[in-house]
């Protein structure tokens, strides 16, 4: 697998490490009800198809990335900086 880091270009899988669903960016408020925290921490859509997940360019520029990817074909459709995605989500919330 090769992932295109927005900074470093296309790099081999071995430079990256994986975290999981990009829903990790949507951290509930501290006082959110327990169910919301449970869903955030544990429940997953786990789609067989297109998913968005978090990768870390660990052996590279240390950027956290949101990769849009197909879990059945391993096709990669997009790769964005997690920082940008998170900031955009905040803008949208306001």
């Amino acid at each position: 697998m090769r992932i295109t880091c927005p900074y470093c270009g296309t790099r081999d899988l071995r430079e990256f490490s994986y975290r999981g669903a990009a829903s990790d960016l949507e951290r509930p408020d501290a006082e959110a009800p327990p169910e919301e925290w449970h869903a955030y921490l544990h429940l997953r859509d786990n789609p067989a198809g297109v998913t968005r997940d978090l990768w870390y360019h660990e052996m590279g520029c240390a950027s956290w990335l949101v990769v849009t990817r197909n879990t059945v074909t391993h096709e990669i459709l997009a790769c964005d900086l997690a920082r940008d995605v998170a900031l955009k989500a905040r803008e949208a919330k306001r």
């Binding site: 697998m1 899988l13 490490s17 994986y18 999981g20 669903a21 786990n46 067989a48 998913t51 997940d53 990768w55 990817r69 879990t71 059945v72 074909t73 391993h74």
Partner: peptide, 10 residues
């Protein structure tokens, strides 16, 4: 270490 249904690795 990535979510997958492809039944094959890298």
């Amino acid at each position: 270490f990535y979510a997958s249904y492809a039944a094959r690795g890298n």
